[in-house]
C-alpha cells in the first residue's frame, strides 16, 4: 500500500481554502441552475395559459 503524504498545518489550511472555494462555486452553479429552471417553467407555463384551447 502506498504511503500517504502528511501535510503541514499551512498545507492543510491551504487545502481547506481550496475545497471551500470549490464548494462555493458548486453552490453558486446549482442555485443558478435551480433559478434558471424555475424561471423557464414559469415562462413556459405562462405561455401555455395564454394559448386558447
Amino acid at each position: 500500500m502506498t504511503e500517504l503524504p502528511h501535510l503541514t498545518l499551512a498545507e492543510s489550511q491551504a487545502l481547506a481554502k481550496k475545497r471551500r472555494g470549490r464548494n462555493i462555486a458548486m453552490l453558486i452553479a446549482l442555485v443558478s441552475l435551480c433559478v434558471l429552471f424555475y424561471a423557464l417553467a414559469v415562462v413556459k407555463l405562462a405561455g401555455k395559459m395564454g394559448t386558447p384551447g
Binding site: 500517504l4 502528511h6 501535510l7 503541514t8 492543510s12 487545502l15 481547506a16 481550496k18 475545497r19 470549490r22
Partner: peptide, 28 residues
C-alpha cells in the same frame, strides 16, 4: 493539522490518521 484536514473530510479527527491528497484536492 490533522484535525483541520480530517474534519474537512468528515472523518473523526485523530492525530494518527494519515491524510490522502488526491488530484481533485489540488484543483481550485
Amino acid at each position: 493539522a490533522h484535525a483541520v484536514a480530517a474534519d474537512d473530510r468528515g472523518d473523526i479527527a485523530s492525530p494518527l490518521s494519515p491524510l490522502s491528497v488526491a488530484t481533485d484536492d489540488i484543483s481550485t
